[in-house]
Every structure is written in structure tokens, then in C-alpha cells.
């Protein structure tokens, strides 16, 4: 295997891990957003569906992000150093969101002596609920901002001064639009998944409505992002709008988006779930393929990588790890995501 093969394979692994994170862990954040906005006479039931859907799996889903970080710093250490230096602020906010979301969720759902739902009027419970919802909003926005900043070629410009170095790269229209897109996308994913999770027809309808609304938000932010890219991220715009590959990717994502809406409206929840996942994958892979070969444009490519010994070992461990991981994940999802009745943690 040549060095180039290793670099391509490992950046592919990085992209797959990121995609799986958005599809699983991202949707858990989206579910948190819906928990915050659960309203109406059946708000408590909605929260119950959400909690039961994510409780057994969110920690496993979250590990995809850790894998992304470790592969990045092992295989592409220079890129990792630039990203974590220049994006210190949004990354720190992302972390705060992750910490508060996870803690608020367990404090809320594992409260020792009461049924959290009965105690919903209790002020401590309400506080955890708020914190859970707000941090579920914060994290996907920050993740989007980080991706936007990396891809718009702002990180590696020579700069002096605090704001130029550490604020301007991400506090700009394009990264913010990508942040919005990312939030809309994870809420869309979550709403669609929840239509499958909800047991009764009435709740399914509620989540279908939420799915349609967040579908609209996703499309809106998608268009804003693309329009802003023209001026703010010209290389991305160029790649998406003026190349054959770009057209194929946009076409694929648009088709998947239409299919998901139709499936949601007609109540074909499982097809909707597949199509929604295809939308998210289309967006991520579209971004990655127009950014190729840069990891941090315009100076660090995926060929600025670690020495071959490290790359080979990393690839081998990812491969062996995957052999253990995917069957285990399969069992986990089979146990908790089947059509069986949902029940909470036993006490």
C-alpha cells in the first residue's frame, strides 16, 4: 500500500466517522431540541418518547466524535494543531454544550426518588430540562461553525491580533450559516427518527409535523449557505456549482430531500428515515469532495500527514476495531430500536 493510499483511506475513515456521528449523535442533539420545544397537552409523552429513544444509545453514538478527534490528531497532526488553536473559542463552546447536555440528561432521567415526568413541575427538573434543551441547541451550531470555518479557507491566512487570529475565522456569515444548517439538519433527522420511535399514531403525527417544519428550515439554510458561499467560500461554491461532480452531489441531495418530504407527508416513516440520512450524507460528502484534497484550505492537504508507520498502524487498528464494533452496535440497536415495546431503565 502506498502512502497516498493510506492517506486517502484514512481521510475516508475520518469522513465516515463524522457522517456516522452526525447521523447518530447529531440526531440525539436534535432530539434534545425537540424536548425543549415539546408543547401542548401531550408534551410529557413526547419527552418520554425522546428520552427512551436516546437513553440506551447516546453514549455509544457520542464516541464517534471522539474517534474523529483521535484519527485527526494521529493522522493529520498539523491540521489538528491549526484547527484547535484558531478555533479555540467555538470548540470550547462545543465542549460546554456536550458536557451540559450529557449531564443534564442523566440528572433528569435518573433522578433517584421520583418519576421525572410526574415531577415535571418541580423546579429542579425544569432547570435540567432547560439546560438539556439549550445545550442541545448550542452544540450542533458550534459544530457547524467549526466545519464552516475550516472549509472556508479562513484558518490559515496570515493574521495578527486577537480578533483576526481567534475570532474572525469563525464569527463570519458563512460559518454562522453552516452552524444554522447543522442545527436544522440534526432537528430534521431527529424528528424523522422519532416518527418511527413513537408508539401511537397521534404522537407519530406530531413528529411528522415537526419533521416537515425542520425540513423547511434545512432547505432554507441550505440555500442561504450556498448563496453566501459565492462570496464567502468561493472554492466551495466553485466546486459545487461549476463542476460535474458538484452537480451530481447537489442533485442527489435534492432528490433525497424531496423523497424524505414525500415519505414524511405520506407516513412512510422508515423510508423517510432512510431518505433523511441520505440528505445528511449528501451534504457532508458534498462538502468533503469539493474541499478535496484540502483539510485546512488553503495550505494543509490530506497529504500533510503523519509518517507511514503511524498511518499503517492506525488503519489496521481502525479495521480491527470496526470488526468488533459493528456487530456490537448491531446488537445494541437490535435490542433497543426494534419494534418491541419500549420500557425505561429498570430499577
Amino acid at each position: 500500500m502506498t502512502m497516498t493510499d493510506l492517506e486517502l483511506l484514512l481521510s475516508g475513515a475520518l469522513l465516515i466517522a463524522l457522517t456516522l456521528y452526525v447521523l447518530t449523535g447529531g440526531a440525539d442533539f436534535g432530539a434534545g431540541v425537540w424536548s425543549l420545544f415539546a408543547a401542548g397537552p401531550r408534551a410529557t409523552e413526547q419527552r418520554r418518547v425522546i428520552d427512551r429513544a436516546i437513553a440506551p444509545i447516546w453514549e455509544a453514538n457520542h464516541v464517534w466524535l471522539i474517534l474523529v478527534v483521535t484519527v485527526l490528531f494521529t493522522a493529520f497532526p498539523a491540521a489538528f494543531a491549526v484547527i484547535s488553536t484558531r478555533l479555540h473559542i467555538p470548540l470550547t463552546l462545543l465542549l460546554l454544550g456536550i458536557v451540559l447536555r450529557g449531564s443534564a440528561f442523566v440528572f433528569r432521567t435518573h433522578d433517584p426518588d421520583s418519576d421525572p415526568y410526574r415531577a415535571e413541575r418541580h423546579s429542579a427538573m425544569r432547570f435540567w430540562q432547560w439546560l438539556f434543551g439549550l445545550s442541545s441547541i448550542l452544540s450542533p451550531i458550534m459544530l457547524g461553525i467549526v466545519i464552516g470555518a475550516i472549509s472556508s479557507g479562513r484558518l490559515d491566512r496570515e493574521a495578527v491580533g486577537l480578533t483576526e487570529l481567534f475570532v474572525r475565522p469563525w464569527l463570519a456569515p458563512w460559518p454562522l450559516a453552516v452552524g444554522g444548517l447543522s442545527l436544522a439538519l440534526v432537528t430534521f433527522l431527529a424528528a424523522v427518527y422519532l416518527t418511527v420511535e413513537a408508539a401511537d399514531q397521534d404522537l407519530k403525527r406530531v413528529f411528522r409535523l415537526k419533521a416537515a417544519v425542520s425540513w423547511g428550515a434545512t432547505i432554507l439554510f441550505g440555500i442561504i449557505t450556498l448563496a453566501l458561499a459565492r462570496r464567502e467560500a468561493p472554492a466551495i461554491y466553485q466546486g459545487l456549482v461549476h463542476t460535474g461532480l458538484g452537480h451530481v452531489l447537489i442533485g442527489f441531495t435534492a432528490l433525497a430531500a424531496m423523497a424524505s418530504l414525500v415519505a414524511v407527508r405520506t407516513g412512510r416513516d422508515r423510508i423517510a428515515r432512510l431518505a433523511a440520512a441520505a440528505v445528511a450524507t449528501g451534504i457532508l460528502w458534498g462538502w468533503a469532495s469539493v474541499q478535496y484534497p484540502y483539510i485546512v484550505a488553503p495550505s494543509l492537504t490530506l497529504f500533510d500527514s503523519a509518517p507511514p508507520g503511524t498511518m499503517g498502524l492506525l488503519l489496521a487498528s481502525l479495521f480491527l476495531g470496526a470488526l468488533l464494533l459493528f456487530p456490537s452496535l448491531y446488537i445494541l440497536y437490535r435490542l433497543f430500536k426494534g419494534s418491541r415495546v419500549q420500557d425505561g431503565p429498570d430499577t
Binding site: 464516541v63 474517534l67 494521529t74 497532526p77 503523519a306 476495531g321 464494533l325 445494541l332
Partner: peptide, 18 residues
């Protein structure tokens, strides 16, 4: 880095089976 990647799979196993 490879140690942390291996650790990542240990975390996966831990979180999944927990």
C-alpha cells in the same frame, strides 16, 4: 495517537455494552 484510537474502540465497547 494510535493508543488513543485503540482507547476509542475500548470506549465504544464500554458504552455499547453498558
Amino acid at each position: 495517537g494510535p493508543l488513543f484510537a485503540l482507547e476509542g474502540f475500548a470506549f465504544f465497547a464500554e458504552a455499547i455494552f453498558l
